[in-house]
Simulated scan of single mutants.
Amino acid sequence: MRKKVLIVTQNFYPAIGSAGNRMRNIFRLLSEESIEVEVLTIEPSYPNKSMYQDQKFWDDEVVNNSLDKIKRVPIKSRKFTNRILSRLFFYLEIMYRFTFELFKRRKDNYDYIYVSTPPIFIVFSAWIGKKLMKSKLILEVRDLWPDSLIGVQTMDHKWIIGLFQKLEKKMYRMADLIVINSIGFKEHIEAKLKKEKTIIYLPNGPRKEEIIEDKGSSEKFRVIYAGNLGLAQDIGRLKKMAQVLDSYNIHFDVLGYGMKTDSFRTFIDESKLSNIELHEPTTRQESLALIAQSDLSIAFLNDAAVFSTVLPGKIIDYMTCQTPVIAGVTGTAASLITNHHTGFVFEYRDTDKMIDKILELKEQPHKLELLRNNCKKTVEDHFLWEKNIKELSKFLK
């Protein structure tokens, strides 16, 4: 008898970013493994809902033909801000609407409810669903919350943080299985558990057909930054890097979105940086194509301790496109880049050294070729979805 799984997630196709793409891959691949999969999610709205009126974002025909398996609930609170109360009401509304939908399905026979964080509030919706349906609960952890709130300095009320940390422990302990997308999360989670629990490492990565086989070459040396322009990234350092690269006549593509985007756009205009191009958010396919045109990529995370456990999805995207990484990161992400020789890692504040390395590699095409080959091999060996989904599929069956 086929197993039946309900995925409960805030982020799902066609929502841009690694989270939406991740949940789409899990939905498609588990379905291909003869598992009956349904999805409960919200209407795509990040960074703005109107963006998804463009049909180019709805480019996955397999998912488009599975709309009977996907329930999208409307959310009134769609404003993304750095105000903690605004975000809290947004998350609580999602929790309420998911709980209501799960209550309506209380007589359905799901073997598993697969819930993805952040935010943690929807986990408690899923827990109610678990009780109502007598299902097992699989918890996917994509972010160490509330530690990440502390890391971006959006929350300094100790009593609230203390409450959230208690909810975090409860969340880990009530799950039947925990899935993580960064191996750096494992030790943190195990320390919160009362007893040993199965933890599966399922990293972000590409599908086979997304791996760039032939990099090609462009006339002009190009550098790219792709990803969030938010609180966890240091936009000040990115601005400095843009200014210096422009002075060396190096083309710098920034494919960014988030609450700091307008600030970065204003900086480019006021500084009259002719070699810097800020791109609008686009589809995954177009994003990978842009990354593939670049010779080097940039990754930043601030130096808060929590971010040492994170493996940003964009770093894997860079390597998927054979684009070596110049990174100001620590911990898990730094180890991956260093151990597999897919780029160079620097201290978070060493912007000057990062720029020097870019200028050095610009004159060393043979070294760049070696780094590109390492990127491709690393992704094929460790990050292919088709390989990594097998462990989760085996557990479900």
Rank of each mutant, 00 (worst) to 15 (best):
K130P: 03
K220Y: 14
K220S: 14
G230S: 03
V244Q: 09
M241C: 10
A232T: 11
S125P: 05
N249P: 10
I161C: 01
L149N: 04
M133N: 06
L193M: 09
F221P: 02
K239F: 00
L238A: 04
H188V: 15
L139R: 09
K169M: 13
N228W: 01
I224E: 02
I180T: 07
I180L: 05
T198I: 10
I200H: 09
G256W: 00
L177K: 02
L255T: 04
Y172D: 01
I128Q: 12
I150M: 08
K197F: 07
H188Q: 13
G151P: 01
K158A: 07
L202C: 08
V152G: 11
H251T: 15
E190M: 14
S217Q: 14
N204Y: 04
G256A: 08
T266K: 14
V254N: 02
P146K: 07
V152W: 10
K136D: 07
R222A: 09
F264C: 05
V179L: 14
W159Q: 05
F124T: 02
A226L: 08
L231Q: 14
K166M: 11
W127R: 12
T261V: 11
Q153W: 04
R237E: 10
R237V: 02
L132E: 07
I128R: 13
W159Y: 13
K260G: 02
K192R: 15
E209G: 08
E168Q: 12
W159M: 05
V152H: 11
T261L: 15
W159P: 05
L177S: 05
R237N: 15
E213V: 10
P206G: 03
K240T: 13
I180F: 06
Q165D: 06
T266Y: 09
F121A: 12
Y225T: 04
L255R: 02
F252P: 01
V244E: 15
D176I: 00
L137S: 04
A191I: 13
S247M: 11
V141D: 01
R207Q: 13
K158V: 00
T198L: 11
V223M: 04
R222W: 05
D156I: 05
I122R: 01
I183T: 13
K192V: 06
V244D: 12
G129Y: 04
S182P: 02
S217A: 13
R222M: 13
Q233H: 11
D253L: 10
E168R: 08
K169T: 14
G227T: 07
D234G: 03
K194C: 13
L229A: 10
K166R: 14
S217K: 15
R173P: 09
G258A: 08
L137D: 01
I183A: 14
A232K: 02
A191G: 14
E187G: 10
A232Q: 11
S125Q: 05
M171I: 10
D246R: 08
F185P: 01
I128A: 11
M241P: 07
K166E: 08
I161G: 03
W159F: 11
I224T: 12
G129S: 07
Y172I: 06
L167E: 08
K186F: 07
D246S: 12
A126V: 06
T266P: 00
G205S: 04
G236M: 03
F264Q: 04
G227V: 00
L255D: 00
I122L: 08
I128P: 01
I250Q: 08
V152Y: 09
D147K: 14
